[in-house]
C-alpha cells in the first residue's frame, strides 16, 4: 500500500467510521488506563466494518488516541491479520505450518486453487474469495484446516472444502464450521 506524505501530515478530515460506533469505542476506551492500549481493538473494529484497515480509519484512530498517524501505521504493519487493502468477502486462510503440512495442508491449497482458479494472495474476479496461506492457527490436532473470516473449518477433505466454498458463495455461511472446540470428543459412556 502506498502511504503518501498526506497520511503523515493531514489533520483535518471528515471522519465517519467511528461516529457510528461511538458506544463501542467508548466501551473499548474505558477498559484501559492508557489510551494507546485501545489501538488494536479499534483497528480490529475498523477491519470488521470495512474488511480492511483504510488510511482514513488509521487517521481517525490516531486522532481518537492522541497518536500520530505514523505511530498507528508502524503498529498496523507489525500484525499479520490487518489487511491494508480491500480483500474478498471471504478470506480463506489455510494453515501451512508443519503440523498441518504433515496431514495434507498443501493439498488443501491445491484444491482451493483448482476450484477457484486463484493463486495465493489473489482474489476471485467476483470479489468473493481471497486465498492466503498462513502460519499455525492453533488447530494442529484437527488439521488440515483453514480459517474463513471468524470461523475455523477443520479436518478438511477435498469434498469438504468444495462444500464449504459452495455454501459460502450461495448462503454466506456454512454449517461445517467448528463450534466450541473439543477433540477428541469423550466416548459415550
Amino acid at each position: 500500500m502506498a502511504i503518501g506524505p498526506e497520511l503523515l501530515t493531514s489533520t483535518n478530515e471528515c471522519f465517519m467510521l467511528f461516529e457510528r460506533f461511538k458506544n463501542e469505542v467508548d466501551d473499548i476506551l474505558s477498559r484501559y488506563p492508557v489510551k494507546r492500549s485501545a489501538l488494536l481493538p479499534l483497528l480490529n473494529l475498523a477491519q470488521r466494518e470495512e474488511g480492511f484497515v483504510s488510511e482514513s480509519a488509521m487517521k481517525e484512530i490516531a486522532k481518537i488516541l492522541d497518536l500520530t498517524p505514523a505511530q498507528v501505521f508502524e503498529t498496523v504493519t507489525f500484525y499479520t491479520m490487518f489487511n491494508l487493502k480491500p480483500i474478498g468477502k471471504f478470506h480463506l486462510q489455510v494453515c501451512k505450518s508443519l503440523m498441518c503440512a504433515l496431514v495434507g495442508s498443501d493439498d488443501v491449497v491445491m484444491w482451493i486453487q483448482k476450484k477457484l482458479g486463484i493463486a495465493q494472495g489473489q482474489t476471485t474476479a467476483d470479489n468473493i474469495f481471497t486465498l492466503s496461506v498462513v502460519e499455525c492457527l492453533g488447530s494442529c490436532g484437527t488439521g488440515p484446516m483453514m480459517q474463513v473470516n471468524d470461523d475455523y473449518y477443520e479436518q478438511l477433505s477435498e469434498e469438504k472444502v468444495g462444500r464449504v466454498l459452495d455454501d459460502l458463495k450461495r448462503d454466506g455461511t456454512c454449517s461445517l464450521k467448528t463450534g466450541p472446540f473439543m477433540y477428541p470428543q469423550p466416548l459415550a459412556k
Partner: peptide, 16 residues
C-alpha cells in the same frame, strides 16, 4: 496467545 505450532489446549480450555 496460544501460537506455538503443535499446541491447541488453551483453545479447548477457553471455549469449553
Amino acid at each position: 496467545d496460544e501460537s506455538e505450532p503443535g499446541t491447541f489446549k488453551d483453545r479447548q480450555l477457553m471455549e469449553r
